[in-house]
Amino acid sequence: MLSRTADHLYWMARYMERAENIARILDVNHRMSLMPQSEVQAEQAWGATLRIMGLENAFHQHYAEISADAVLEFMIFNPENPTSIRSCLRAARENAHAVRGTLTSELWETTNSTWLKMRDFTPHKLNDEGVSEFFEWVKFRSHLSRGVTLGTMLQDEALRFIRIGTFLERADNTLRILDVKYQLLLPAGEVEGGAADFYQWSALLRSVSAFEIYRRVYRDLITPSRVAEMMLLRVDMPRSLARCMKEVYNNLRVVSNDHSAETERRAGQMEANTRFGKIDDIVREGLHNYVVQALGRIQDLGNRIADDFLVPVSKPAEATV
């Protein structure tokens, strides 16, 4: 398939996934903000949300102070924020539009209608109807788009690049959510949070749809290290780093070409690390360090995938019939 086509498919999937994850992060914060807390705490939480996406500076260029309304406006609607939900859904749609002939009509229409509907939402309307419902809507559109992808697309290269985009993006987001919350909830030196943190940890789990799963898997109290274990190492947990890396690796192997061996090796290595890793080791070494390293590797993988498959490199000398 055309390199450019693969590039659009990959980014279409990444932006859709990103929109979903932002909705998850915002939703969880919004829910937490409904619980009793001081203004300082509230502001800290919204600030952390911006930090997850690396958007603190960009935010302060547009707004003087952090407040729930400002952060929501910025992260949902602001067209100048390339990571706002609106921008992501638009980018997903634009990428889909560029390769609409490669998509099944169901997938194209799903992506297109999501964007058309997004244009109908306004901050004013959300105030009236509730933001949580909007976040639900974003999540469901993302679920729908994945379902339509799996339910209608031929199992060929196109599907593989979509899947790689989805899981690379999800791995990145899961790591960020975990990292920021971990720092916020476990101030330096403190090993375990008090009982009051129960809501915070459960909210974190909910943000990755893992609250019920946690109960089923551990049948026990919610502890920070188990939460980290679930989000990093449990391969049966669909949003964990381990699951994402397994999907990235498996899909990469299918599309491999004659210069992608090193990229596959690095993806495989990362997949093996999560598969055989132990949470006690990670916590002992420092969770934050682990996350920073993992984020770096994911970025490296993204760059390598772009070089190997997506960026059209002109090498006429290698031309073969």
């Binding site: 398939m1 390199s3 498959f309 490199v313 290698e318 031309a319």
Partner: peptide, 13 residues
């Protein structure tokens, strides 16, 4: 290239 047209694909020209 050499009188022929190629497209850039994920598996090469």
């Amino acid at each position: 290239d050499h009188g022929h047209v190629y497209m850039r694909t994920t598996r090469g020209p």
